[in-house]
Every structure is written in C-alpha cells, then in structure tokens.
Design a protein around this nucleic acid. Structure first.
Lengths: 190, 190
DNA sequence: ATTGAAAATGAATATTTATTCGCTTATCTT
DNA sequence: AAGATAAGCGAATAAATATTCATTTTCAAT
C-alpha cells in the first residue's frame, strides 16, 4: 500500500497558486495545473475529487496558514503597540512572501468554486484579529470606531500595498515599510 | 440601414458586470451574458469580436468612468482638505453605487483577458490622483511619503471597505462614512 | 410601399476543458 | 519474493463553452 504523498499536495497547490497569480482563476485549467506540478492530469483526481474540491482545499489551507503566521511571536503580556506592530509586520511579510496566495484568495472570493461552508470557516478564523482591536480600544490606544471598520481599513491598505508593490516594482525597504506602518498607526490611534 | 444600438452595449455591459460580481470572471459564459442582457448569443458578436474584446472594452469603460466621476466638483482654487474630502467622497460613493465594477476590475487584473495595452491606458488615467497628493504635500498638509504609497493606502482601504460593506451587511451611514474619512485623513496628514 | 443593408437570431459547429478508465508502476505486508 | 493494494499515468470520453453562419427581422432611404 503506497500512501498519498503530502509533498505532492504541496506541489499541486504551488502549481495552482503560481498559475492563478499569473493568469487568473479563469485562465487556469486542470491540465495547466498538472503540467506545472509535473504530474499526470489523472493524478490530480487521485488527490481531489475535482476542480472544485482542489480550489476549496487550497483556499482553506491558505487562510489557515496566514492566520496562524500572523500571531507568531505575539505575547499579550507585552505592551500593545509593539505587539500590534509585530502582528502587522507578520501579516505584511506573509503577504509579500506569498503574493500568489493574496491573488488567489482575492480571485476566489467571487468565484463559483468556493462554497458557503468554506467561506464561513475562513470568516471564523478572523476572531483573533477582532480581539486584538478590542484590546487596543480597552487600553484607549486606538479609536473607538467599529472594530470591523478598523480591521478592514488596515488589511485593505496592506493588501493593496502588496499588490501594487508587485506591479510597479517599488521595493519595500525597511524605511518604506516603517512609513507605511506609521500611516496605519496614525489612522488607528486614538 | 439599422444602426448598432448604444443602449444595447450598455445592456451587455451591465449584464456582464452583474454576473461577474455574482459568480466571478471564471463563472461567466457568453451564453450567460447574452441571456442576462436579453439578446441572442450571436448578437454579442455583432458588438464585439469575442469575449476578449468585450472584457477589455468593459474594463476600459469602467476605468474611464470612475476617474471622471472622482473629480466632479473639485475646484483647485479652494482649500486642500475640503477638496480632498470631496474627491474621497466621490470615489467612495462611486464604488458603493457601482459595486459590481469594483469586483469586475479586481477580477480582471489577473485575468488573461486584459491586454497590456488596456492595462497601460488604465494606469495613465491615475495622473490626476498623483497630482492631488503632490499638492497636499506642497502645502505641508500631508506626509512627505512617496505619493504612490499614500494613494495605495487610501484607495486600498476604500476598496476593502466597499467590499466588506457588501458582504457583512454593514450599512455605511453618514457617521460611519465620516469615521472612515477620519481614519484616512489621520493616516495621510502631516 | 419597396428595397437594400445592417442587426438580430439561435441552432449547428468548433474548440476547449473537465473527468474517467484501463492499464502500468511503485510500495507495503506477509 | 510474491501478492495485494494504491498511486500514477495519459489517451479517450464527456461536458461545457466560444464562435460561426444561414436565415429572418428591422428600419432608413428611396
């Protein structure tokens, strides 16, 4: 009995991400994915029931991964602002290093592939972000505006930053990253 | 001699926008579009060479329209901040009222449909936005950070705001809109 | 009213793409 | 080492989709 290879799933996911970032969700076929992953088309169907399942699985994996990485090194005992910056940097770094995931997630949101269930689960993973904002409000450090609004503002700006960085070839050196954090902090701070 | 009907092009565009916002670019077929527009599939090919041309034309039309609307009522003689808020509100209102275009543009960016030429032309239309930021900097009212960065920040946040507003059913009443403007202004102000 | 040129139609065709399946190859168990 | 079980293959098939085209309808000019 040979076992399904986890490494191969990673290969498939990476192939799909690369292709979607390059050509968009609508431009990517199962044939493209298998070729890019270096396996036969039929093999895709050993790992996933079909295209839908593949896309949903990838979507869920990306989401889980990104949330998990965001809070790496966060210690609620320490003061708010450095902790917040830590998370902000985690997110930005993640998005920069996983640009393809950013694009993939964006393209998926309005696709017929992602099921309500998958979407739901993704949403639930946002809870820690809300909690973070509430802490900042409790400590009177950030504005008493709806936390959803604050998060949208912060994450939307970051997303666009990452995308435009890629297109326009701006390099995000440390100084530019700090400038951007300052924009964000000035926006949110009480 | 019967003439091609401009109203029909609008119908086609609106059908395409509606469907893309609902199902994503990858979920929309020429058949869907013609059905939604209330015309025969073959008629689409009277107006456009094919799907590519249709998508590119719609992309260009959306972009031109949105830029044009953004500067409505802007008078460079008047002080910067109210002028800036005027434009900011124009953009926000436009995006809220034309949610489908927001989604369509987003989905297009990484699709194989949009040609380099179309993309180029869209980019050129950004010039007035850069000029606006430069004015604010000259008057020492906003941060001396790279204008591209400032714009990305502002527009990215708005885009996400509009999207999340639709999903989560937040209603953007006047007070909430003003809160969001304050976030934006605090971010940019010197 | 008649006519001609263009628009509109939608069934038929061509093309693309997802999925299946009979077969081969690899790996685990005994 | 042999047998069994599952992975891997890719050509063949099925399904979905774009595009064409022979025909009909519309409408402005005469």
């Amino acid at each position: 009995m040979k076992l399904k290879d986890d490494k191969k799933i990673v290969q498939i996911f990476q192939a799909a991400l690369k292709l979607v970032a390059k050509k968009g969700l609508s431009g990517v076929t199962m044939g493209d994915i298998s070729r890019e992953a270096g396996i036969a088309t039929g093999t895709l169907y050993v790992y996933f029931k079909g295209k839908d399942e593949l896309i949903n699985a990838l979507f869920a994996a990306c989401r889980e991964n990104s949330v998990q990485v965001s809070f790496k090194g966060y210690n609620p005992q320490l003061p708010f602002k450095p902790g917040f910056k830590n998370i902000w940097l985690n997110i930005l770094r993640y998005k920069l290093q996983h640009f393809e995931e950013v694009i993939f997630m964006e393209q998926c949101y309005h696709s017929p592939f992602i099921t309500a269930g998958t979407r739901e689960k993704a949403q639930q993973l946002s809870a820690p972000f809300y909690a973070l904002m509430e802490r900042g409000q409790k400590e009177q450090l950030i504005k008493q505006t709806d936390t959803g609004l604050l998060l949208i503002f912060m994450l939307g700006a970051m997303n666009e930053l990452v995308k435009q960085t890629h297109y326009s070839g701006i390099t995000l050196n440390r100084s530019r990253i700090n400038s951007t954090f300052d924009l964000c902090w000035d926006a949110l701070k009480a």
